[in-house]
Amino acid sequence: MHVHHLLNNNSIANKFIAQLRDTSIQNDRMRFRRNIERLGEILSYELSKKLNYSSEEITSPLGISKVSVPKDEIVICSILRAGLPLHTGILNYFDDAENSFISAYRHHPNDDKEFEIKVEYLASPSIEGKTLVLADPMLATGRSFVNVMHALKEMGTPKEIHLVAVIGAEEGLKLLDDEFPPHTHLWIAAIDKELDSRGYIVPGLGDAGDLCFGNKKQH
């Protein structure tokens, strides 16, 4: 797997990550969602450099210009519900992409640190031969990405796979490297070293879905 770590180089993305983590700013849900959206835009710009392009002749009022434009058929698949602002950021740049949505959540059957990832809803076009952009802001254990990819198999085999995340843990990255094809690309803003006893990223930022949309009733 090819890992593209945004914070390896200083950019305005650092500011957005800092605000997402900051407990004094997190209570502003609109700002939290917007920062995830903006990081989705930045990550999409970087991702766009790896797409396939073809030359087209564009007619302007004063003549003809040759421009290289993306030719990939893109499907953006986001994991509900925390993935919605990230999805919006990606769609802002790939505005003619098809869209896919899937639910994946942690289920703690014994109310302890053990959990399973449940996938219960999928609405998706065919991904056969297309470029799949799979988005989830938090890459903790990596099991959500893996389970969602298994669920998408009935929709076809994509030509290319790009994973997009805001913050991840090294353990999750290792699982993705083991489970996804070697030519898969991961676009991620920040990578933290560890998970806590319940599988949450440390220092991370907390529950992205709750911070975006409010607390949910626990399953």
Rank of each mutant, 00 (worst) to 15 (best):
M138A: 00
F94G: 04
D177H: 05
Y45V: 10
I188E: 00
D196I: 11
L152F: 03
T141N: 12
G199C: 02
D95A: 05
A123Y: 15
L20T: 09
D178Y: 07
D192K: 04
E154R: 14
D112H: 14
A208D: 14
C212T: 10
P61E: 04
T23P: 15
S197N: 15
V202D: 05
D72F: 05
R198I: 14
N10V: 10
V202S: 06
N99C: 05
A189K: 08
S144W: 00
S11G: 15
G214F: 03
K15I: 09
S60Q: 09
K159M: 00
P137Y: 12
Y200V: 12
M149G: 06
A190V: 03
K15V: 10
A140T: 04
G199V: 02
L176S: 02
I201N: 02
S144N: 01
S65L: 09
C212S: 13
L39Y: 04
S197G: 14
E73C: 06
R38L: 08
A208G: 08
R29T: 08
L62N: 02
I191T: 08
H4S: 06
K118E: 14
L91Y: 12
N8G: 13
K66A: 10
Y93C: 06
V146W: 00
M30A: 12
A82L: 12
N27F: 07
M149L: 11
I201P: 02
D192Y: 06
N9K: 14
I42C: 09
G168K: 02
I117G: 07
S44K: 09
M149W: 06
A189I: 11
A140Y: 03
Y45K: 08
E73F: 05
H108D: 13
I201F: 02
S124M: 03
I17M: 03
D112E: 13
G206E: 12
H2M: 09
P181L: 01
S24F: 03
L195Y: 02
E41S: 02
E114A: 15
L43K: 01
M1G: 03
H150G: 08
A82K: 11
H183C: 07
L47N: 02
I127H: 01
S68Y: 07
S103C: 13
L205E: 10
E116Q: 11
L91F: 10
L175V: 09
A165M: 01
A135L: 01
L39S: 03
G63R: 01
T141R: 11
I167G: 01
E160P: 02
T88Y: 12
A208V: 12
G156Q: 04
H219M: 11
L39M: 08
H4C: 05
A135W: 01
K113N: 13
H2F: 12
